[in-house]
Amino acid sequence: MAKTFKALSKQLLGAKYESVFKSLTASVILFTAVYGSGFRITAAPAVLYLTSVLFTAGVMWQLLEGKRHLEAMEGMFMLPFDNRSFIFSYVSALGAHTLVTKTLPIWALFFAVCPWKLWETALAAFCGCMACAVTAAAWVMYRKGRIVSAIFWPAGILAVILLADREAVILTVDLFCTAAAVLYLAFADAYNFYCPGTEKKPARHTGRTGSVPVYLLRYLMADKSCLINTAGLCGAACFLPLLFGKVQGMDLFPIGLAVLCMNTPVCTLLSRDPDLEQSLRILPGQAGRFCRKYCLLIFAVNGITAGIYLCCWQIIHGGNSTTHGMTVFFFSILSAGLSVVLEWKMPIRSWKTESDLWHHPRKYLVPLIMLATAALVSFR
């Protein structure tokens, strides 16, 4: 079990565990900077517990759905292995990667802006560990077609965290769910975690020229992460007008547009497909042709979410629809152009899992530029 865990950990965290040191350094810098700024808030412990569970579970699910580490698993399956040891090693490696490289910076931010008691910090850490185990078990249930159980189990945990008044109740539920997840995984099949997907028959095109928009549209429709992320942004577009309004002569409508441009799966198409990028860079004339269509695709996706945001804003707050419509067009085309330029000039290279790609710090460059632009536009 130890050898399997070590092999998988090096696959996820680097040969010398470089990702661990990078995450620790980033967390220390983030904590020091935010804590030194003197910014403090007061939050209920349930917020910390919910964030620990939801964020960790989301990243863990992304790792389980990822395809990047399937080659290492395929090589291990060619050798004799113990089923139970492999499952626990695999889940432990994914959980360690999730907690250390993704959840730790979030905890550093929470601990810097709000004072927490020692047992609240410990319970939040245990909630993160529990989320890893339960997510792995729920993912196996989902793979086996037990969708109802995979949904209601995590939903019950979230309900307990929201409704429980005492930490003892939450700790008891966490212990019970962790034990149940470990027991379920102990009798699972290791091949349930291996999902390479079905090999499709290659399509033959007889036309003289291919259609880049059709290719991009098929790519978008075939990728569940793109669809789920876009659907989530559409839901956020309906919710953001309830939070934003006019504050002391400042129109916060552009701020929402800047937030909605963070569609990472759509904006990292070349980074996640190195073969496609290499083909585009080698073939003459393909870069400009592809990038123009790619920019239009991102513009269309951003325009859909921004259009929903505009409609909800007009229903709730009203305002000058012409000015807001022009603002939507400007922010959609600007964010699309910046995303394409950044993806072509600075593609993300050294990523080990899809979660690393989607949580790379580069994803925040375009939203930060758009937020700065929104701040300038918002002042009247």
Rank of each mutant, 00 (worst) to 15 (best):
W61C: 11
G197I: 05
N83P: 04
Y35P: 07
H205Q: 14
F193C: 01
S9F: 02
M221F: 15
P361I: 07
A131K: 01
C177H: 03
A44Q: 12
P361L: 04
P241Y: 00
K293N: 15
G288Q: 04
V169D: 04
I161F: 03
K10V: 09
I304H: 08
M60K: 09
C177T: 11
Y35G: 06
R204G: 13
F330T: 11
M60G: 03
L109K: 05
A179H: 07
M370F: 05
A125N: 08
Y90N: 02
L8E: 07
L240W: 06
A336F: 04
K3W: 08
G288F: 01
I41T: 10
K363D: 15
V173Y: 05
G285Y: 05
F187M: 11
G319E: 00
L8D: 00
A96E: 06
S89F: 00
A72Q: 15
T264K: 13
D275Y: 14
E74P: 06
K201C: 05
S211H: 06
I348G: 05
Q314G: 03
T135K: 07
G285H: 10
T98K: 01
V113R: 01
F110N: 05
D174H: 12
A57Q: 08
G75P: 08
A72Y: 10
W153Y: 07
E71A: 13
S37E: 10
L269H: 08
V301N: 01
I333G: 05
L123T: 06
Y294P: 00
A93I: 00
W358I: 10
N192C: 15
K201A: 09
A33S: 11
Q314W: 01
R292P: 04
Y142K: 15
